[in-house]
Design a protein around this nucleic acid. Structure first.
Lengths: 345, 345
DNA sequence: CTGTTAGCGCATTCAG
DNA sequence: CTGAATGCGCTAACAG
């Protein structure tokens, strides 16, 4: 095998030599600096193309300037939920010629917010935080360091920082109201991890709808879960075992709703004739399960895209005020919900 | 709030000063160089911890040494399929203190293999290629540059390079044979993108099983798809419209199987009583659709983990021979398949 | 408009 | 065992 070196060996100096200019000029051409004569620019560009020159990002980053890489911090990749958001991010990033660096926080080392701050120094131009567990840990440092970032799906805490989320409260309110209008009076609720703002908002929306419609809140009807499927099963089971079981169950996300569906069926009950079930998120498989799940759609991909846009905006206009956006959720009625009066007595 | 500067401002020089040594020594401590007196090492380490020092990867990478970042090239993030593999990669990477840099090839710029080679120069220590469209484009350059990489799910081409895949041929063979033993004689097949090795292998497995069991191959029963759901619907429809329609349909992946299920139901036919349906991959929702999908499980996450291990191995032992691994697939029988004789005449 | 120069933070010789 | 010096590839002043 011929001992050939990495083709990437082409450096700015070689381009400069071959084009008969100084390396400074080449740099200017690369960065679209206006102070270059058109024909010089042309010539240099040609040489760059010819030699297959690609800038070394390390060196560029070292100087403290733009890396054109955006960092994404995500809890993990296990659920399709994160995947949808990532997809949106990636799509938008592609439009702007940015690359993506993904860090998953389930690794112990990265758990320390300080580590993150250091890590990203120079590596990425900005940070997208998906569902951070303790957002305050990061936001403090990041804000302090004046480092651009946007929170995704976590507008819970009070501190003011750029974030995009969904109208969790409104979505849960609407869904609960829909159930009430269907005639349900005993509506079970399975919460998400209560340390997440979204979970709190959804529970609040549920409670508010109940209250507005003068249905007393029954603590027995609220089961605390953590957004994972087994909690849905456990929650569904617990709710169904009540002396006066609910006629409908509203789970704080789709995977828990599916867990609850298993619990319902496991007891020989029918969906939706005996028990209605409603989820949150509208992940792809919700449309595919039988019966198809009625749920509250969260525009995950859109959230990813928007957050990315906001971040890139920040990068371009560092002085612009920060904004927090809430994208609307939408009730998607499918086959898992029905009026309780339709039940065979 | 105290006006604190970026914590990341801590550099090797400052650690050196505070520890009363030269920056060279600090560097040695960081890199576990043996030539450091135990107590010196201790002292320096303490200062590093105290100051929250974290090495700047850019600078380190610039020098041509390890970056502890692995690059992943994936076609896109749209399907859960890639997500599963990524999850495996990420998990394994976490175990070895590597970070992950993700590039998606649906972006035009990155399509050029040369660009990739240049790009990764110094940025990542190795590359994981998921389902590359034209693997030869990359493997040539990468091999030539002596750059460590592993192909995932693409062992199709002849060139010898490290790869992990699944036994696509065997999986398709077994599944087809299972259908035949159930009594099916007319088995429709929906292919994947035929430019992918996996798709070819699956089709071949199907054909071989037919041949072994002396069932004539009927070109009409083979519909060419591209691994996306709409193809499943179109393929299912086309197959069902045949004068002598199949009693079972085997789709080259689960999402196409689900598309086909829609087509079947759209014609008022029942699954599996009227038509059996079988998929490939065993993505999460396959267990959740009704009827639950019989499918060939591909150990996606495991493939991701294994490929990562192989890559890290390469990094540690550059001289080791390359190996290609095929992980076994497994037939998962669920509710979407039945003997044709059970059909109501 | 273009060339020159000084670092960015670190790994690595090379001397002690 | 440790310190000093050199340069990785590039950007950003600063001069012309």
């Amino acid at each position: 095998m011929a001992k050939k070196d990495v083709p990437s060996k082409v450096t700015i100096v070689e381009v400069a030599e071959k084009a008969g200019v100084s390396l400074g000029t080449v740099s200017r051409v690369m960065n679209n600096d206006i102070h270059v004569a058109p024909d010089t620019r042309e010539r240099v560009a040609a040489v760059m193309r010819e030699m297959g020159y690609v800038a070394n990002r390390q060196a560029r980053g070292l100087k403290g300037s733009r890396t054109n890489v955006i960092g994404v911090l995500a809890p993990d990749l296990g659920t399709g939920y994160i995947g949808e958001i990532l997809h949106g991010i990636d799509t938008e990033l592609g439009l702007h010629q940015f690359d993506l660096m993904l860090f998953t926080t389930h690794r112990t080392a990265i758990k320390e917010a300080n580590y993150v701050a250091n890590l990203v120094k120079g590596m990425v131009d900005g940070l997208l935080l998906i569902l951070p567990r303790n957002p305050a840990d990061y936001t403090g440092i990041l804000t302090n360091a004046n480092f651009p970032f946007v929170l995704i799906d976590h507008q819970g805490t009070g501190s003011l920082c750029p974030a995009v989320g969904a109208t969790n409260w409104q979505g849960a309110y609407n869904a609960t109201e829909y159930l009430i209008k269907l005639g349900h009076k005993r509506i079970g609720f399975i919460t998400g991890s209560m340390d997440l703002g979204a979970a709190i908002d959804r529970l609040d929306g549920y409670k508010s709808a109940l209250q507005v419609h003068h249905i007393p809140e029954d603590p027995q009807l609220i089961y605390e879960g953590t957004f994972f499927q087994p909690d849905g099963y456990a929650g569904g089971s617990a709710l169904l075992d009540l002396d006066d079981p609910p006629t409908a169950i509203f789970a704080s996300n789709d995977v828990m709703a599916m867990g609850a569906m298993d619990a319902i069926r496991g007891r020989g009950l029918r969906i939706p004739e005996d028990v209605s079930i409603l989820g949150f998120d509208d992940i792809p498989q919700s449309a595919m399960v039988r019966p198809a799940l009625t749920t509250v759609r969260q525009p995950l991909e859109h959230m990813g895209r928007l957050a990315t846009q906001m971040l890139i905006d920040q990068l371009k206009n560092p002085e612009k005020g920060i904004d927090r956006v809430e994208l609307p959720t939408q009730l998607i009625v499918r086959d898992s919900t029905l009026s309780p009066k339709d039940r065979a007595g």
